[in-house]
């Protein structure tokens, strides 16, 4: 199963690194990544594979959300299917 990770917040050193470490801890594989910085705001989107994750997805979502608050970022993980459902006939 694939999921989309969206990270938004003020840019600083090490955002991608720390998020990738977190994901690796859950055994989540990063498939694709794109990021932009606009006027000091950092926006990153990743497509990840959660099939072999070592925790249920709902728990990973909650823990990453908490991690985001700790880091002053918005981090969210959503299953890829909702975007497909919404934007493809």
């Amino acid at each position: 199963m694939k999921a989309v990770v969206t990270v938004v917040g003020k840019d600083r050193v090490g955002i991608i690194a720390s998020i990738c470490v977190e994901l690796a801890n859950y055994n989540v594989n990063v498939l694709d990544i794109s990021q932009t910085v606009m006027q000091g705001y950092f926006t990153m989107m990743m497509v990840v594979d959660v099939s072999n994750a070592n925790l249920p997805l709902a728990q990973i979502c909650q823990q990453m959300d908490a991690k985001g608050q700790e880091m002053g970022l918005s981090i969210r993980i959503q299953r890829e299917d909702i975007f497909e459902a919404m934007h493809r006939v």
């Binding site: 999921a3 997805l57 709902a58 728990q59 979502c61 909650q62 959503q78 299953r79 299917d81 909702i82």
Partner: peptide
């Protein structure tokens, strides 16, 4: 319901 809320983010 709560699990799905988290997973889909809705």
């Amino acid at each position: 319901g709560q699990d799905i809320e988290w997973e889909f983010g809705i």
